[in-house]
Design a protein around this nucleic acid. Structure first.
Lengths: 136, 136
DNA sequence: ATTGACTCTGTAGTAGGGTACTGGCTTTAG
DNA sequence: CTAAAGCCAGTACCCTACTACAGAGTCAAT
């Protein structure tokens, strides 16, 4: 019950090139080959690609996903280390959220002081960025 | 009262290479040169680099900053077009915020079902990513 | 047997925002 | 005067996550 790379790509919802790229990056194992050199994949690889897709949706980078996957095959590793990585990722996300909220507040303040009618010389937005407004 | 590129870099808090990079990108004007070819900068360029830094902090890309700067020197452009760009940027930021909040919610849910004591086979985080948990 | 779809390797390009290096001048401090 | 520090142009390289070829071999259907 093996499949070629095109079938795998279709099943997993990714591009063929992406699969070969993941192979080069070490995210999926080097597959068995047919006599003529075609890659042969099992169902398990479909699941692995879906795992990668989900982890990406959760904001993990490919390198982090590689770490998660290597945890799975390491001896003596418990679920706790996975949880720890997830918690670190939550902290990262919190940092990004804070930074974006700061940006947004500054921009909202600026657009509110701006009536849109001033000449460019008096534009509060440009001036605030020029002179150092409520930022930093 | 002109300065060389190193001094400018120091004053503006950016790297020398970054200044030359901005010059290539058209974010700062091509400066006058000394007889021996050294770039000569005025105070105005310090302010421009600070403008660029602030705008980056607000989440504008270099291309967007270039547009903002070109608005400043275009005739017949009012403050309204600047305000409009800022508002579009606010909408972009809202989109990113929504996406990050979704990620965080999913990760928090996962870490809460995980006691950290399970074996890896039973790790709720890995399983959720493997099998399709509360995502999508 | 031939056509068309599929796969192979290897290399290069994309965007964004820089950083690093090479080899050769110039300027400045001692 | 000399040595160190600073500058020049041009090019290559970093990261992320792919994507796009080119040219050649393979497989399935007709």
């Amino acid at each position: 019950m093996t499949m070629t790379i095109g079938k795998l790509a279709q099943r997993a919802g990714v591009g063929i090139e992406t699969i070969r790229f993941y192979e080069r990056k070490g995210l999926i194992e080097t597959p068995l080959r047919t006599a003529s050199g075609y890659r042969q994949y099992s169902e398990a690889v479909v699941r692995r690609l879906q795992f990668i897709r989900r982890a990406k949706e959760l904001g993990f980078t490919l390198n982090e996903i590689k770490e998660l996957l290597s945890l799975k095959t390491s001896a003596g590793v418990t679920c706790a280390s996975v949880k720890q990585k997830a918690e670190k990722k939550i902290a990262d996300i919190d940092g990004k959220l804070r930074s974006l909220r700061r940006m947004k507040r500054a921009l909202v303040d600026l657009t509110q002081t701006c009536n849109g009618d001033s000449s460019l010389d008096e534009c509060p937005i440009l001036n605030a960025m020029d002179e150092g407004g409520p930022l930093e």
